[in-house]
């Protein structure tokens, strides 16, 4: 992926797997380590539509997505963009899991789609190991089990 300019990591410890409306949550240094993005929107038929596309980072940290051929008019459309990475293991499987999911609206910008981030959810197993991620997710597991309780009691 081509990269414009140089980015210095802000060095902040952003909370992972959280949502925050602050625009500066997208760390360009971390984002620049991904090779491409998966843009997803909801189509007229109600199904999600995803397409993979390259992206660039401007000197100002703007996320510029290459326009996929299949994209509908996108101005002011809310999309989710997943940046994902795994490293294959020669003996099978993968490691080095990390992803960044950014939601926001897009606008046309010099032939690209400029993403205006509104929310972010991200995980990097080198920052938050998987067992700690599991521990942090226990409330969601408890909630799901409780939601099943009526059918178990019936």
């Amino acid at each position: 992926m081509e990269k414009w300019g140089y980015f210095q990591s802000p060095g902040g410890n952003h909370p992972l797997t959280t949502l925050d409306p602050a625009l500066d949550l997208v760390d360009p240094d971390r984002l620049s380590r991904f090779r491409y993005g998966v843009v997803t929107w909801i189509g007229e038929d109600g199904f999600p539509f995803s397409v993979a596309t390259d992206f660039l980072l401007s000197e100002n940290g703007e996320i510029l997505l290459k326009k996929p051929s299949t994209s509908p008019p996108m101005t002011d459309r809310r999309v989710g963009v997943l940046f994902n990475h795994i490293t294959g293991i020669p003996t099978g499987g993968y490691t080095d899991r990390r992803y960044m999911l950014v939601w926001g609206k897009v606008s046309d910008d010099k032939g690209f789609l400029k993403l205006h981030p509104e929310e972010i959810s991200e995980w990097d197993e080198k920052i938050l190991p998987f067992d700690k991620l599991c521990a942090a997710a226990v409330p969601q597991g408890k909630k799901y089990l409780e939601s099943l309780q009526p059918s178990i009691d019936a």
């Binding site: 491409y36 109600g46 199904f47 993968y94 997710a137």
Partner: peptide, 25 residues
């Protein structure tokens, strides 16, 4: 169940998509 928010979404709206874009590994 720890990561079951997506399941809650699908119980309300079963329309989903799967994109296959990463051949790694």
């Amino acid at each position: 169940i720890l990561f079951s928010r997506k399941i809650e979404h699908m119980k309300k709206n079963p329309k989903v998509s799967l994109l296959f874009s990463n051949p790694e590994g």
